[in-house]
Amino acid sequence: MKVSELVEKLGLTVYSGRKGLDREITGGYVSDLLSDVMGNAREGEVWITLQVHQNVMAIASLKDLVAVVLVNNLEPPESTVRHSNEENIPLLGANFSTFEIAGKIYQILNP
């Protein structure tokens, strides 16, 4: 499944990083602890989080993640948007809680 298909299916907001929308998703990781993501997330995953600062994009890039999904309608600051565009990693917004969005994405990826 491509990031763009996930966006469409769940009505996610695309804040930035549109050039990465064609990338293929291999799975997902849910965490708000950055060292947890650093240690345990895997290449190709989407990262669901409530952290909105730009270090999130630095980590997504270092870990070769394909998208970051912000929960609860959280909006990213300008610095995070800029970083997402530089790295071509989509920064998405969901009008769902972490529990809900993780469940929905899990279901879509594991039909």
Binding site: L33, L34, S35, D36, M38, G39, T49, Q51, H53, N55
Partner: peptide, 11 residues
């Protein structure tokens, strides 16, 4: 910010 989980050195 989400740092400070005490996982860095173990990582």
């Amino acid at each position: 910010m989400g740092f400070g989980a005490g996982m860095g050195l173990p990582n």
